[in-house]
Structure formats: C-alpha cells, structure tokens
Write a protein that binds this DNA or RNA. Structure first.
Lengths: 338, 338
DNA sequence: CTGAAAGCGCTTACAG
DNA sequence: CTGAAAGCGCTTACAG
C-alpha cells in the first residue's frame, strides 16, 4: 500500500549545519530566507546544502509548523473537457501561489468521493476544491467545515449552506442560447440531454423562461433527456429527429451533448447551421472547431477554475471572510451551428 | 504561500490512549490492524477514537516510517483529451492501490516542470509518473533516478536511458492507418499536423513505411505541419485543400488534428467518408461521435494510464526489477471518416 | 546573530 | 499482550 522506507539516511539540516559549522537553527533560518542571518553565513550554509545534496523535507517542516501547502481538488468527470479545463485553470493558479494539488477523480461515485476526501483530510490539505459528484448530500459542506478545512464548491451548488462557490449562471446562459434561436425566428425549440441534478433544473428554467418571454408555451414533448455525454446527445438528437421531424432548432444541455447531436445530424444528412439550428453550453475548446463550429454560451471554464482557486486562497488567508458566490457571466458565442 | 497553523490542538493518539486507558503504542497497533491486540481492546480503542473525532495524521506517520503514499503525476497537456483520459486511468489505478496523486500540469513549460518535480521531491513522493514536456532533456531520467524516486515515463520516450515506459506504438499505429487508406485504393495520401518531437518522427516513419510497402514514393509536399491541436488541424486541412485539391485522403498526427480537419472539410462543403478519407490517431472518447465519427487508431488512452500505474507500482515494490517498456498494440478502428 | 532544548504526531524496537 | 523510550526532520521560542 505504501512504499518501503528508503535505505539511505537522508541528508538533514543537521548535516548541513555540521558542514557549514553553524547550528541547526541557523540553517533553518537561512532556508526560509530570514533577514537575521548575515550574508556571509547564509552563503556558506547554502553552499554546504547544495554540496551535500540537501533536500528540504516539507513534511517534517509542516508537521512541526502545523501548516500545509497541499490543496485537494476533487473532480467528478474528467472525461468531460469542461472539467479538464476547469482543473487546468485551478491547478495553474494554485501552483503559482506555491501550492501543490492533490487531485482525485470520482467518476460521480459517492463512495470514491468519500474516500478521497478522507485521504485529503489525513494529509492535512490546506484547502479543498470540490466538484461534487451527483447525489452528494448538502450536509457535506457542513461536515467539511467541521473538519476545519477551507472549502470551495465548484460548478454544482450543494444546498443553501454557508460555503464559497464558483460556477456558471446556468439559467441565464441557456436563456441567452434559447433567445438566440428565438431571434432567428424559430418557434419550436427542442432541449437535448441532461438527466437530473440541479444544474439541469437551472438550465431548463432558462430555456422555459426564454420561451415564455416570447409567449411560447412550454411543451414537455420537446425535452429529450439523455446522459450529458456525446453518446447521450447523439441518441437524443436521433430521437428528436424521429419524434418531431419538423423541429428546426434545439439547445443542448452542454457542448458534449451538442457534439453528439452534430454527429447525429450529419448521419441524417443534415448540417447544423443550414438545416437545423443547434446551440451548445460551456464553450469547451473543441467547440471552436467542431463540424460545424458550435454556437454556444461561453461559461469560461479555465477562468472558472482560476476563480475557484482565488476564492479558496482568499478563504485560507482569512477564514472569517463572508462567503462568496461567484457566477460567471455567460456570453453568447455565435459560430456556425446556429 | 502556505496556510496558517490551525489554532485548535488536534486530537492525537495520546488522547485516544488516555480515553481508552491504554498506551500510545497500543493505539498505534490497533490503527494498523495488528493481530497482536485482543479484539476487546481493539474495540475500545476504536470507539474512543471515533468518539474523540480522531484523525490519523499521515504526515507524522510517514515522517517516522520514512514512507509515503503519494505519487506525483505530471501531465504536459490536459487540454488534449487524450492526456485527460490517460490521467483518469492512472489516477483510478493509483487510488485503488491506496495512493493519492499529486497532480501537476506543465503546459509544455520546462521551467514549470522542473518546479513541480522539485515540489514532488520535497513532498517525498513514493513515485513519479511523467509525461515529459516537449524539449525535456534525456538526462532527466538519470537525475530523477539519482533522487532515489521510482519513475515511469509516459507517452514520449526520453532517450535510451534505463527507465520504465508506457506509450503507444506510434510507428505501427500510423502504418495501420495509412495502410487502411491504401487498401481503399488511395495513392496520394497527405499527412496532417504535428511539429517536431520524437512522437512525430515515429508517426511519420509509420506513414512512410506504409507508403513504401505499397511502392509509393514519399512526397514531402504532402506533409502539412501544424500544432497538434484542433486549430492546427483546421489550418493544415485548409492548406492541403488549397495546395493539393486533388488529394483524396490524409492521416492525422492525432485525433485532435483530425477533428480540426473535419471542421475544415465541412467548411469547404466536403464530408469525410464521402468526399475525403480521413484517419485519426489515439481514439479519444470524442472520436466515436465526431461528425462524422472518426476512423482512427486506438491507442487505448485509459488503459495506457493504467499500465503506467502498474509499472510504477511494480517498480516501487521492487526497485531492482529490470526496466520494462510497454507499447500498447494499436488497433485500427474503422468508423465513417475513412 | 547563534545555540540548546522542546516538541509536532506518529512508529518501532525493546522490555516486561 | 502492553508500556516507556527514542527518534523521524524540522521550527520555534528562549537564552546568551
């Protein structure tokens, strides 16, 4: 389960101290760049450290100091490029701030999520950034708070509790997408993909809101539920085509679903932007070069990750600050699919 | 840079020992499930631990034990779903083996790579899985070995040194893809995307080898270099269409490039599989539902990540074992684009 | 400015 | 089967 102890004794500050002819404490001070130490001494110590191949033992330091420079990041679905982009933005910001990230992927598995959260706790993570797996109880935020470890929740909210959050404005985003279709003159607009969860609820609400503003009655027969994946979108679009061949337009739960739908459209001899108007949501990198390029709503995935990191860092810095909910302002991006 | 010490004193095994009326060592033994302790005592200790909200301090344990259950994973390009899939496979396997993963993303930045590697060393990672950034010197493998930390290199080899490796058989893979195009009767076949690096060299070699087996002379004018991204593929395909409009087929450096090419084809009114034969490489998840679904060569990204994990775990278990190079057997996957 | 001492929370022989 | 002691590698007051 864990690796064996290494056999060679590590070089410690004691060895460095001996080599540089100073005390242990002096070495420690030099290592953290204390101004108390004269340059000459500091030089000597550094030279000795380099010469001996000394490696700072961060765990020992943290144990003593009761601090940590590792942050736990739990991602629910790495197979969705949206989350990969969020993760990349988050990790970059964390690394720049001198932290190291303990990453775990839950694949929407609650049991796995619990396990990794516990591991992060045992490792004394300085903070946790969590994209909760589907079905995570809202009480988890309180539980994590009781652990005394700073938390930021990403993408999916987790009840009304007191926690920092960074996500997209789902309702407003889909409203924008739907309205774009409406303005192009479409009156019957399908909704593709998504199964359960608050995010779906919010996006569906945006869809309905845009319709009702345009004086169009909501028709449940136009909702084609499917997993939020390419396969799901592919399937949903084929179902739409079969059930409602006259429907000229649809908004998708997310870009992944839209990609699947694009594929299904192609198989039926149609092309989005010419024979059908299709909108995505997220603006993952792929959307700019899908076939055809996807019109979508930009949720700014990388920026979202960076925001989450910023919130977490601020919380670590000041545990008392009021909680903050950051909602990325969605931006309509018209490309060729609609 | 690091967080502040928490103010509350943590509950330690000493507290648990006091509550359960046993000694510190007994608690330690119970925690690791030693058979030396009678069930009754063990019960009592566990109850006391639970009651006090005791949390195992892994860092303290590891410091004493000189071991570690964290493994460093450095990824060069998370924006490519191929690497995200490799990472997911790797992390899953590692987590199942009881390890926790310290993840870092280099974005092909050597400076960043050096920094994260050092951080992992200071954290006493039990092992490192590395997708080297472009331009990484081959000497890095020896340097890491001199650190005494087990290493597995992924995807891109790093010189002829003595290290474990898991990657795809690039030459054979592209050979398969090219041959598929040849068998469909195409004689003039373009090569799209890629800029420098050993992987490109190997893939190009596979392309040439297939051509020469078919008695076709290599034509450098059919190579369209471009970054290994969607934008690169998009650009390369437009250049191909402009320069060599009669070319009926192409193999791509990877799936990402192929997706961009699919998009460019669409813009020019063509459809892969009907007006043009296009092959990818990698078989990322997206390939099954691109428009049209991409014929490609399956490098088994997730399995590749798992293999890398297996190699690393085996190396940790036995540092003396002979080095092993794992090359995933590429599998031709014919879908609709060719 | 530098040294001796205590201690972070655990594990590991070693006695009993 | 259980307890007392030493020690992993560092930092942190506290003297000098």
């Amino acid at each position: 389960m864990t690796n064996k102890p290494s056999c060679v004794r590590a070089v410690t500050i004691l060895d460095v101290a001996a080599a540089a002819q100073v005390s242990k404490s002096t070495v420690s001070l030099v290592l953290k760049g204390s101004a108390l130490i004269p340059a000459e001494t500091s030089q000597r110590v550094r030279a000795a450290a380099a010469q001996l191949g000394y490696v700072y033992n961060r765990r020992a330091a943290e144990l003593r100091h009761r601090s940590s420079n590792t942050i736990g990041v739990v991602i629910n679905d790495l197979m969705n490029p949206f989350f990969a982009e969020v993760l990349a933005g988050l990790e970059r910001r964390l690394a720049d701030a001198g932290y190291v990230t303990l990453m775990a992927h839950t694949s929407e598995n609650l049991e796995r999520q619990r396990r990794v959260l516990t591991a992060m706790r045992e490792h004394h993570a300085a903070g946790i950034a969590l994209c909760p797996a589907l079905g995570t109880p809202a009480s988890l935020t309180d539980e994590l708070k009781s652990w005394g470890i700073p938390l930021v929740v990403m993408i999916r909210t987790l009840g009304e509790g007191d926690y920092d959050f960074a996500g997209a404005d789902n309702g407003r985003g889909v409203e924008l997408a739907t309205r774009h279709l409406l303005q192009a003159g479409h009156r019957r607009i399908g909704f593709l993909g998504g199964i359960g969860g608050l995010v779906l609820e919010q996006r569906l609400r945006g869809y309905q809101s845009a319709l009702s503003q345009a004086g169009i009655a909501f028709d449940p027969g136009l909702i084609f539920a499917a997993p939020p994946t390419r396969a799901g979108g592919h399937d949903a679009m084929h179902r739409l085509l079969a059930a409602q061949p006259a429907i000229p337009a649809a908004v998708s739960y997310n870009d992944l679903v839209a990609f699947g739908a694009l594929s299904a459209l192609g198989e039926s001899g149609r092309r989005a932007g010419r024979d059908f108007a299709l909108m995505g949501f997220d603006n993952v990198l792929d959307a700019a070069h899908s076939n055809p390029p996807l019109s979508t709503v930009d949720a700014g995935p990388a920026a979202l990750g960076e925001q989450a990191a910023a919130l977490l860092l601020a919380r670590i810095d000041n545990p008392q600050r009021p909680r903050q909910h950051y909602l990325a302002e969605p931006r309509l991006l018209v490309r060729q699919s609609a």
